[in-house]
């Protein structure tokens, strides 16, 4: 990927993210805060963005959304379910969901 392609791809990803975030916030604000893992203030800002503003924010060389699990080894381990059988995939994923749902400090 050359530099131009990288910038294009990042802009596309940012734009998709912003559009999805905005429609989630508009359809159910409280559930959107859970789904997106963002603060109420960020949600208010995103909800108000015009298409032109979105285009402006989306361009740049960095992504706007980031990983929810940061460097939490426990959650990563459960999501990847190393060396366990496939039957227990759903169980490990469920365990990860419980841990992720419990992490609301980051949202504030």
């Amino acid at each position: 990927m050359n530099a131009d392609q990288i910038l294009t791809e990042i802009r596309e990803a940012n734009l998709s993210y912003l559009m999805l975030a905005q429609s989630l916030i508009r359809s159910d604000r409280e559930q959107a805060l859970y789904r997106l893992g963002i603060s109420e203030e960020s949600a208010s800002l995103i909800a108000m963005l015009t298409p032109a503003q979105m285009m402006k924010i989306a361009s740049g060389n960095t992504l706007l959304c980031r990983f929810r699990m940061d460097e939490d080894d426990m959650v990563w381990g459960l999501l990847l379910n190393h060396g366990k059988s496939a039957a227990n995939d759903a169980t490990a994923r469920l365990h990860a969901s419980i841990l992720l749902a419990g992490r609301h400090q980051e949202a504030a």
């Binding site: 159910d28 409280e30 805060l33 859970y34 969901s97 419980i98 749902a101 419990g102 504030a108």
Partner: peptide, 25 residues
């Protein structure tokens, strides 16, 4: 129950919801 309650707590901590709305959502 733990999965539901973690989600419920998350909603309550991130926004001010009436109790029954937090249960529904």
């Amino acid at each position: 129950a733990s999965l539901f309650l973690n989600i419920h707590e998350y909603l309550n901590k991130s926004s001010a919801l009436d109790e029954i709305d937090a249960v529904i959502k």
